[in-house]
Design a protein around this nucleic acid. Structure first.
Lengths: 345, 345
DNA sequence: CGTTAGCACTCGACAATATGGAGTGCTAAC
DNA sequence: GTTAGCACTCCATATTGTCGAGTGCTAACG
């Protein structure tokens, strides 16, 4: 049964999937022969289609409708049939022009990337910001906010700024804070956050009977600052775009998806998983056990900073998606963002 | 024609509006007499309803349906009929419990406020963050990112952190940056941003033939930093909540609203306008000429910081909204946020 | 033996039609 | 001024019929 597909079946499967991507409607045998003249009669195509259905690549919504691809069908299409179309010059330019602005903060670059992805693909753009822990320490500042509340500002090598409020009983003058700042900046500069954590722990252990109150406090503070794992920040841009797709006339489905957007954690997980890989990756809806994004696909690519892959960006849309267009868009954007980040740091 | 409404008409109008808020369906004369026994027959109520329709408070979607309130009806209801129900103790506690966490950044407090607003009201929570310009300067820091790119970090009195990248041809050592920092922190501390701007301009003019290169550079930088008006940051929480409302089964309408959410500028405008007022304000949909939020209402209240009203928060939902519940929620949240911010600073 | 024409059949989409119920406005009586 | 009664309107819903697209099967064909 599950033998290889011969050339003809593959051609027909490809035709059906591409027609379906275009039209969002079940594709009949007739339509296949008409739009892609391949010297076959509808009847023959029907036979092949029946086989493809048997093998699980296609699915008929009801007896007398055409066929639509199953996820297995899409998967096969993506892995074996798809030929991506390289971007034209104007397309590349259209993407590029958004990155020429000077003096951009990283956050702005990432958000802009999301917007561009969404506006060019007509789906929803996703960008997972670099993990706090994967960045390199550059500078720390303490600002006394009020009695017992101190604002910690932390700048990474690449210019990401994080801040956090910590509380303390101790009364510290601004000048004392400055001393602490100097000490920490000297000690920690150039380390990754993971290394920073380790270093702090080590210092704290080593100097158990800490003679210097300020030093002790400084270590405590930074321990508190770097202790918690930040849940990755994710930019979701153009969420409404996706609603233009006919699959989202189903309101319930739409709500599920938007709940997932609002919660973010699911997307973070998916994007995080995709970060390890090289090149463009494609998740198909329920391959990922999350019912919220049923019927959707993610096309993602990691972008690089100083320390290899630091974040992920991509597009989410219906599984019925022109992958041959979206893939190069995502790919190119990832390269572009990588370039911008690398130049910056 | 447009004479005063007598007691009876007002009672009936109130009953209709409240029933409609409950049911989201046109209210008939029968229903009014049944649910609020007021010693009148349906026929009499019908007569009154006809009058109310004539006067523009009600509207019949079609010949043989009940009546629904017009915007004029809602407006009258809100201004003259509504009695808000004070929050119960448990409700207050339910709101409060989200603000007990220590060591919160302002951004977190505001976002949390939005979430609470949305989850308690079942609509969408909105919070307009304090305007950059309305905050008080506390501290500035420069961090050299790379050749010619400098990260400026600015902390307001209340602990808001903003950052920005500026570019320069000049090569500046970190030590020089520190000098600049000291100078600016000394000069500008305690001023509002508007005052900071003025001050910088003045200094620049006064010391036209600036002897000190660094000082000049410092002023230039801060001028660049504070020059641009930041578009107010707005938190939109629980946008999906609003979709549970029956008025948003209309997909087109929903899309319009979500586009407005995505764009934010419209909301910023509305919230900004509401910031001047004291107490709870209510905008009714098309009173505001923006078709995107047609059929929606905003219930807002300004919250205060050090300098009077610094931001606005509220709820957006369908005009058919239980104002008597939502108003105290918004009111109480605004007070709470104000308290948190004032304590902090 | 693979391919194709022909045909009966299935099913959804859509329009036309009927039915019921909720609610109204009007009129006449109280 | 209030109310019962009644004819009327209109929507919502279900029912039915029709049309077209598409299928699977079978038999014929090269």
């Amino acid at each position: 049964m599950s033998q290889e597909l011969n050339e003809r079946s593959r051609k027909i499967l490809e035709a059906i999937i591409e027609d379906y991507i275009d039209s969002a409607e079940p594709v009949g045998s007739r339509a296949v022969t008409r739009r892609h003249q391949m010297g076959l009669s509808p009847a023959t195509v029907r036979n092949v289609m029946a086989d493809l259905e048997e093998m699980g690549y296609l699915l008929a919504p009801h007896t007398s409708a055409g066929r639509i691809p199953t996820e297995k069908g899409y998967r096969f299409y993506i892995d074996s049939l798809l030929r991506v179309r390289p971007l034209t010059l104007t397309e590349r330019q259209r993407i590029e022009q958004h990155y020429h602005l000077k003096g951009r903060r990283i956050e702005d670059v990432l958000q802009e990337a999301g917007k561009v992805l969404s506006s060019i693909s007509h789906y929803t753009g996703l960008v997972l910001a670099p993990r706090f822990t994967s960045t390199v320490f550059r500078q720390i500042e303490f600002v006394r906010l009020s009695e017992g509340r101190i604002l910690v500002i932390f700048v990474s090598e690449s210019g990401l700024v994080q801040n956090k409020v910590i509380e303390t009983d101790e009364r510290l003058a601004q000048s004392e804070l400055e001393q602490m700042t100097n000490y920490l900046n000297l000690t920690l500069s150039g380390l990754t956050i993971s290394e920073v954590k380790a270093k702090i722990l080590e210092e704290m252990r080593q100097e158990k009977a800490l003679y210097d109150r300020l030093l002790k406090k400084a270590l405590e503070f930074s321990s508190e600052t770097f202790g918690e794992e930040e849940g990755g920040q994710v930019y979701i841009e153009g969420a409404v775009n996706i609603l233009e797709q006919p699959e989202f006339t189903d309101i319930e489905r739409m709500k599920r998806l938007f709940r997932a957007f609002e919660q973010k954690s699911l997307l973070v997980e998916l994007l995080d998983a995709a970060q390890k890989a090289r090149g463009v990756q494609i998740f198909i809806g329920s391959e990922s056990e999350y019912s919220e994004i049923e019927g959707c696909s993610l096309v993602t690519a990691a972008y690089t900073g100083r320390g290899g892959n630091v974040g992920t960006l991509g597009v989410i849309g219906p599984t019925r998606m022109p992958y041959n267009l979206v893939i190069p868009i995502v790919d190119y954007t990832a390269r572009l963002v990588s370039k911008v980040l690398e130049v910056d740091s």
